[in-house]
Design a protein around this nucleic acid. Structure first.
Lengths: 218, 218
DNA sequence: ACCTGAACACCGTTCAAGT
DNA sequence: ACCTGAACACCGTTCAAGT
């Protein structure tokens, strides 16, 4: 796999990739410094040569999870800004879903102000294509980011709850339908993007439809 | 204060209120079962007679924090549904801000499916006043809830970061302006409510303004 | 440059037993 | 009904020392 199988010495990259594998295989509660050290065949204290503390390690994982998601589907070039913004949000969701507990790792890192703010920047950029000033674009991006992180955190928490508690209380009420979850996500993203469309600089102040397909050509 | 000052025996309510006080005074990371036990002059194991585990205790705190926020400002009766929905979101934010780390406690409880879902219900009810079907109201409420929890979590995390790291890196870049924070919150809530207004049953499919003051009389 | 060994100061939870 | 005492199985982090 990713680390060196027995050659003793490790790099910062080894440590991060092994941590990512533990995260994906066993979840965030099981990603302890001691478990990570054991997976690397090393004493726990050795990790502190590579990272000053656990939060910094988690921030590195968050950055990798977000960066790995990369670009929204294929060519977003031909789309208007609202579709591009929706695509960016969807791509972020996919990136978070690609790793177990990915949303929680990114959310906690983001909340602490650690990590590069790549996700926030990508969303703000897509919003700015609508001609909004920087503050508006930033606030719209922040609102979208909070929604995405909250939604996917919830989604992932239920995933593992479902796989663990299959037998509890007649399997509760909420079996988590994958497609339903995607629809609920799209609905929330549409609400935010739609709300932003109402504020678009190119629109007539009180006469636009706000409902049809975006016509912006910028 | 809330507990009995020295009369030994405690109730479940004593335990919850003392926990709430520790939360507010020292923050969530310092709310440990051992610290709580010490504050009650009791062994840690005694707490497990009142609550089966820590998560259940936190869910109780979350319910109390949300319930304590109660109703939006004064009379929301005269308002249209969009204003009422905005007021409900603002009231929820206030409730979360009333306790240190309140948003994180509620968010984690909500993510785990514990606690009564009072916040979600209140928002869904306010949305339903717009004439939407139950699924739409629920999804709008969920999107709003995710935004509110994410926003206030972020807000509170920076509050304690600011008060601790006053000296770090020339106080960073982000001094957290209270009024700015409120404006950013209002902007996000407006985006979501505005997006929902576009979908309101009473509107003409492609002719409404979507921008002016709500006229709904329902 | 990268790691060991040993320790410090903690956690949440269980369970038999007491009153 | 409510709590004690003692233990179990862990945590993250530090630091002198090794190679």
């Amino acid at each position: 796999m990713t680390g060196n199988e027995s050659g003793r010495r490790h790099t910062r990259d080894d440590v991060a990739e092994t941590a990512l594998r533990i995260l994906d295989d066993y979840g965030l509660p099981d990603l302890t410094m001691r478990r990570l050290a054991a997976a690397l065949d090393v004493q726990p204290s050795a990790l502190y040569w590579h990272f000053p503390n656990k939060q910094t390690l988690l921030a590195e994982l968050a950055d990798r999870i977000v960066a790995r998601g990369a670009a929204p589907s294929s060519a977003a070039a031909g789309l208007g800004w609202p579709d591009r913004l929706r695509a960016e949000a969807a791509a972020l969701r996919d990136a978070l879903l690609a790793y177990r507990d990915g949303a929680e790792v990114v959310a906690s890192t983001y909340a602490l102000g650690l990590g590069d703010a790549a996700a926030q920047r990508r969303l703000a950029e897509a919003a700015a294509a609508g001609g909004f000033d920087a503050e508006t674009s930033d606030r719209a991006a922040t609102a979208l980011l909070h929604f995405v992180l909250g939604h996917v955190s919830h989604e992932q928490q239920r995933m593992q709850f479902d796989s663990i508690g299959v037998l509890a209380t007649g399997q509760a009420a909420d079996p988590l339908d994958r497609s339903d979850s995607a629809a609920a996500f799209a609905f929330g993203a549409d609400l935010l993007v739609g709300g932003l469309e109402r504020l678009a600089p190119g629109r007539t102040p009180a006469g636009g439809t706000g409902g049809e397909v975006s016509r912006s050509r910028t």
